[in-house]
Amino acid sequence: KSAVKALFDYKAQREDELTFTKSAIIQNVEKQDGGWWRGDYGGKKQLWFPSNYVEEMI
């Protein structure tokens, strides 16, 4: 599983989504079709976030 870095702040709209700030590192990313991926951040595990808010880390 990979890690991504947030390009923008994102505030969860639902309880199954992540809230994060710009430059946050989201771990254990599971990529899905449809523009939403799952990952771990801030003590939350495998919640959804919009993939267009992040960049992949190499």
Rank of each mutant, 00 (worst) to 15 (best):
K1I: 13
K1N: 13
K1P: 13
K1M: 13
K1H: 12
K1D: 11
S2Y: 14
S2L: 15
S2P: 14
S2E: 10
S2T: 15
S2F: 14
S2C: 15
S2R: 12
A3G: 08
A3F: 14
A3Q: 14
A3E: 14
V4N: 04
V4W: 13
V4Y: 14
V4E: 04
V4P: 00
K5C: 14
K5R: 15
K5F: 10
K5P: 00
K5Q: 11
A6I: 03
A6F: 01
A6G: 04
A6S: 06
A6Q: 02
A6E: 04
A6V: 05
A6P: 04
A6R: 00
L7I: 13
L7T: 07
L7M: 11
L7R: 08
L7P: 01
F8A: 12
F8Y: 14
F8G: 07
F8L: 11
F8Q: 12
D9L: 02
D9T: 07
Y10Q: 02
Y10N: 02
Y10A: 01
Y10H: 04
Y10T: 04
Y10W: 08
Y10I: 01
K11Q: 14
K11F: 14
K11M: 13
K11D: 13
K11S: 12
K11G: 07
K11H: 13
K11A: 13
A12V: 01
A12H: 06
A12T: 05
A12I: 02
A12N: 05
A12E: 05
A12C: 05
A12D: 02
Q13V: 10
Q13F: 07
Q13A: 11
Q13D: 08
R14K: 14
R14A: 12
R14S: 13
R14I: 05
R14P: 03
R14W: 08
E15K: 11
E15W: 13
E15L: 11
E15I: 12
E15T: 11
D16G: 10
D16L: 06
D16N: 11
D16Q: 08
D16R: 03
E17M: 05
E17N: 02
E17D: 05
E17C: 08
E17Y: 03
E17G: 04
E17F: 05
E17A: 01
E17R: 03
L18P: 00
L18E: 02
L18Y: 03
L18H: 07
L18Q: 00
L18T: 02
L18N: 06
T19L: 03
T19I: 00
T19V: 03
T19D: 10
T19R: 01
T19N: 09
T19K: 00
F20P: 03
F20C: 06
F20D: 02
F20A: 00
F20Y: 02
F20K: 00
T21A: 11
T21L: 13
T21M: 11
K22V: 11
K22L: 07
K22F: 07
K22N: 07
K22Q: 13
S23V: 05
S23N: 15
S23I: 03
S23Y: 15
S23T: 10
S23C: 15
S23K: 08
S23L: 11
S23W: 13
A24Q: 04
A24L: 04
A24C: 11
A24D: 10
A24I: 07
A24H: 04
A24Y: 00
I25M: 06
I25H: 05
I25Y: 07
I25N: 01
I25L: 09
I25T: 06
I25W: 07
I25K: 03
I26W: 00
I26C: 03
I26R: 00
I26G: 00
I26D: 01
Q27L: 15
Q27W: 14
Q27S: 13
Q27T: 15
N28V: 04
N28E: 05
N28D: 05
N28T: 01
N28R: 05
V29M: 00
V29L: 01
V29W: 00
V29P: 00
V29E: 02
V29K: 00
V29D: 02
V29C: 06
E30R: 12
E30W: 14
E30M: 14
E30D: 15
E30F: 14
K31R: 12
K31G: 02
K31Y: 06
K31L: 05
K31N: 03
Q32G: 12
Q32M: 15
Q32V: 15
Q32C: 15
Q32A: 14
Q32D: 08
Q32I: 15
D33N: 11
D33Y: 09
D33A: 13
D33W: 09
D33L: 11
D33H: 11
D33R: 08
D33M: 10
D33G: 10
D33Q: 12
D33P: 14
G34E: 07
G34C: 10
G34K: 07
G34D: 09
G35H: 09
G35P: 11
G35C: 12
G35A: 09
G35S: 09
G35I: 10
G35Q: 09
G35E: 12
W36F: 09
W36K: 04
W36G: 01
W36L: 04
W36T: 06
W36Y: 09
W36P: 01
W37A: 03
W37F: 05
W37C: 04
W37I: 01
W37T: 01
R38M: 08
R38L: 09
R38D: 01
R38E: 02
R38H: 04
R38K: 14
G39K: 00
G39T: 00
G39Y: 01
G39L: 01
G39N: 01
G39C: 04
D40L: 00
D40Y: 00
D40A: 00
D40E: 03
D40I: 00
D40H: 01
D40S: 02
Y41T: 04
Y41L: 09
Y41I: 06
Y41Q: 04
Y41V: 05
Y41D: 02
Y41R: 01
Y41F: 10
Y41C: 07
G42E: 10
G42C: 11
G42Y: 06
G42N: 12
G42K: 08
G42I: 04
G42T: 01
G42S: 07
G43I: 06
G43Q: 08
G43M: 07
G43C: 10
K44G: 11
K44D: 10
K44A: 13
K44L: 13
K44R: 10
K45R: 11
K45E: 12
K45N: 09
K45G: 05
K45M: 13
K45V: 15
K45Y: 14
K45W: 10
K45C: 13
Q46A: 10
Q46C: 09
Q46P: 03
Q46E: 05
Q46F: 06
Q46R: 09
Q46Y: 09
Q46V: 02
L47G: 15
L47M: 12
L47V: 04
L47R: 07
L47F: 11
L47E: 05
L47W: 05
L47I: 00
L47T: 04
L47P: 03
W48T: 03
W48H: 05
W48I: 05
F49Q: 00
F49L: 03
F49A: 01
F49E: 02
F49P: 03
F49G: 01
F49H: 03
P50V: 01
P50I: 03
P50A: 04
P50G: 02
P50R: 01
P50K: 05
P50E: 03
S51G: 06
S51Y: 06
S51P: 05
S51D: 04
S51Q: 09
N52F: 10
N52R: 11
N52Y: 10
N52K: 11
N52S: 15
Y53T: 09
Y53N: 05
Y53V: 11
Y53M: 13
Y53D: 01
Y53R: 08
V54P: 00
V54E: 01
V54A: 06
V54H: 01
V54M: 02
V54S: 03
E55H: 09
E55Q: 11
E55G: 07
E55K: 09
E55I: 13
E55M: 11
E55S: 10
E55N: 06
E56T: 08
E56N: 08
E56R: 04
E56F: 07
E56Q: 09
E56W: 07
E56K: 05
E56S: 08
M57P: 08
M57T: 10
M57K: 06
I58R: 12
I58S: 13
I58H: 13
I58C: 14
I58K: 13
I58V: 14
I58L: 12
I58N: 14
I58G: 13
I58Y: 14
